[in-house]
């Protein structure tokens, strides 16, 4: 069998006396979508932060393509191939759509310390950013200020910025949050194809989307894994139904 693209081993995190994440291990293989579900406060966001580096882990380790990234800062992990999208869009709202995307291209290029040449005139970076915007379908909006985009468009822009990084794995924190049913449907179809580029670790509340997309599902409750299996088996798991799915 292949090696996992991303592998987290026995991650732990406590805040004071609160155990947010306890012995959580999770792995993601090529071309799959691995969903993490669980009720509010189950530790999903903490887990994502530990994998992406914005929170340090008390115990456990994270491997990306076999490389230990447990102690690397967020920006190092990002340049090694972790493409994260945020639950609450973290974009430069005052800048244009293109500028947001090109920021990703600059970040991925590693050439951060260029002080003189205009970034928008750099055709390599620009083509790359435009290509990623085209994939998510925002090509026509590149000169709009990001603040004027609809909620759904912001979610797509988040994905586009992550795409510019050419990540080895996507980490998506509730991409469907706040989307209408049309938006959810569109994004679901999009993510379904996206897994061919890089596998996705998907934290999501929308169960229809999760079951439509996920190859495997891990269920968290009180910071612990209560089930982790193929999507079809999870649906039938009695413990999961009790904890989360509301008696099916």
């Amino acid at each position: 069998m292949n090696n996992p693209v991303l592998e987290a081993n026995k991650l732990c995190k406590t805040f004071g006396s609160l155990v947010a994440v306890q012995d959580v291990s999770i792995d993601i293989y090529k071309e799959e979508i691995h969903a993490v579900i669980g009720p509010n406060g189950a530790g999903k966001s903490t887990l994502i932060s530990q994998i992406c580096g914005s929170l340090s882990s008390d115990k456990g380790s994270v491997f990306l393509l076999g490389k230990d990234i447990t102690n690397l800062p967020t920006e190092k992990r990002a340049s090694l191939g972790i493409g994260r999208t945020f639950q609450i869009s973290a974009l430069s709202k005052e800048d244009t759509v293109l500028e947001n995307a090109i920021l990703g291209s600059v970040g991925a290029s590693g050439k951060h310390w260029k002080f003189f040449n205009p970034v928008l005139k750099n055709s390599i970076l620009r083509d790359e950013a435009e290509y990623c915007l085209e994939i998510v379908g925002l090509k026509d909006l590149i000169n709009l200020k990001t603040a004027t985009l609809s909620h759904g468009q912001l979610r797509l822009l988040e994905v586009a910025v992550a795409l510019t990084l050419k990540p080895k794995v996507f980490i998506m924190d509730e991409p469907m949050a706040g989307l209408g049913s049309d938006g959810t449907k569109q994004l679901t179809e999009f993510l379904d194809k996206l897994r061919e580029r890089a596998p996705i670790l998907l934290v999501e509340h929308d169960m229809d989307a999760v079951f439509a997309l996920a190859n495997r599902i891990t269920v968290l409750d009180y910071g612990r894994i209560i089930a982790s299996d193929k999507a079809s088996s999870i649906k039938k798991d009695p413990e999961v139904q009790k904890a989360y799915l509301g008696e099916g």
Partner: peptide, 13 residues
Amino acid sequence: QSRQRIEAVGFDF
């Protein structure tokens, strides 16, 4: 505008 964003694309804030 967003520290998270800048770190997520690989910049050292």
